[in-house]
Design a protein around this nucleic acid. Sequence first.
DNA 1: CGCAAATTTGAACGTAGTCAACAAGTGTGG
DNA 2: CCACACTTGTTGACTACGTTCAAATTTGCG
Lengths: 244, 244
Amino acid sequence: MPGSCFAERIGEFVALTAAEDDALRRLEERDRALKRGTVLLRENDRMGELFVLKRGMMMSYVLLDDGSRQILCFLLPGDLIAVSALVYARSPETIVALADSMVSPFERSAMARLLVEHPRIAGAIMALDQMERVASTDRLAAVGRTSAKARVASILLEIHNRMQRFDASVNGTFTLGLTQEEIGDATGLTAVHVNRMLRQLEDEALIARENGRVTLRNVAALMRTANYVDRFEGLDLGWLPEGR
Amino acid sequence: MPGSCFAERIGEFVALTAAEDDALRRLEERDRALKRGTVLLRENDRMGELFVLKRGMMMSYVLLDDGSRQILCFLLPGDLIAVSALVYARSPETIVALADSMVSPFERSAMARLLVEHPRIAGAIMALDQMERVASTDRLAAVGRTSAKARVASILLEIHNRMQRFDASVNGTFTLGLTQEEIGDATGLTAVHVNRMLRQLEDEALIARENGRVTLRNVAALMRTANYVDRFEGLDLGWLPEGR
DNA sequence: CGCAAATTTGAACGTAGTCAACAAGTGTGG
DNA sequence: CCACACTTGTTGACTACGTTCAAATTTGCG
């Protein structure tokens, strides 16, 4: 039985009380396995519950009516899924498994109970939401104002660094788990151009590739070309109320 | 004395108890006037407080190191400002007044108190955060996957519709309050191209312009070319706990 | 092994960017 | 109150980054 991913995530920021830890673990009591490619939620589907991603990798995207797709974010273990169920009756985005994954669904009412009984966790969740919001605006800035090469570099860095946080074996070399088309749909490029940019990064010795695995050969240069900002630094959760 | 903008905003979604209303009003006790152009917070500035925007219009943006700018969002009365202070010690973005504005600063500790004493408000704030997150991903999709004309159309619609929510006099005609360069920095375009797109929208009779004021002449067609989705519909806050 | 999906490459094209010049506003100080 | 400076808006000509289309090749899954 895997520990509680979400409790672990929050535990990175605050020292949880036993009661808090317990409450968080209860969110992950039920498990649901998803095969690669499984759609957890389709755009406009009625939604009522949230999920914790426990294992695997997922993504959310929207389809425009000319058929093109914008990938909004990649989801890794410890992330909350479908938080928009807290406002919307129907999903604003499609959520699908990129790899075989495991999620734990919980009711919105569980979130309500959490707010009432554990206000500090409510604050921590707000803080996590903000981190995600900043990541999303970083992507907006990349898509709106940087070159194709910079965008591809930044997505490699982002996924590598996020994977590294819960999997220490990731250290410069990792399995991206995305097709070039998916990289394109995340960065606002075509698959063809993503291919050219990857080749260019490889030719310049910034990365290496071998059947799906990517090695970051020159992280410093990659960060420079990507305009990368580390958003895991400079955290300050000191304002949170006492834990219960 | 202007009422409490933030209490009014939340009141659109839940019927506040007297105690809740009171607690929200206390966030807006201090007022601070900002002249157009005033920088409230610079990227990387140390930050400790949040703000409610009470009057005027502001925006947040980031600068990339080639000097280009990406505007992340426009802020209108009732919006919270600098919520990222809940996670970061230093601001990830610059926040500046686009028009003469009024803000009410409050400490992060006031947010902590709110969480503890009024859990339902914590939930409502999470819900508002999600609405903003979805607005931001809509913009990402626009910048990543739609034409220049669509992006310009969508920003006109977005600002018009948001202004309309607290100013009933806005009805098809409004003062945008943005330079074409700012429209460009929000949509990932150059000012020159924004100009061309505005002219095109005007030539096609979708909009009209006269010294800064914009009239939406054909909202339906505009929504079609912009791929516009109304995110104020289909709300469901039914999960929130009891008010105190 | 066989087939579909994904990757790779080339060539032609087009949307949006760049550069430049001018016009129209806007605000300021003499 | 006007003159001047500066910002903003407008238009044209040229350029370039990334797209489109097409075809060959490789990969990986059933």
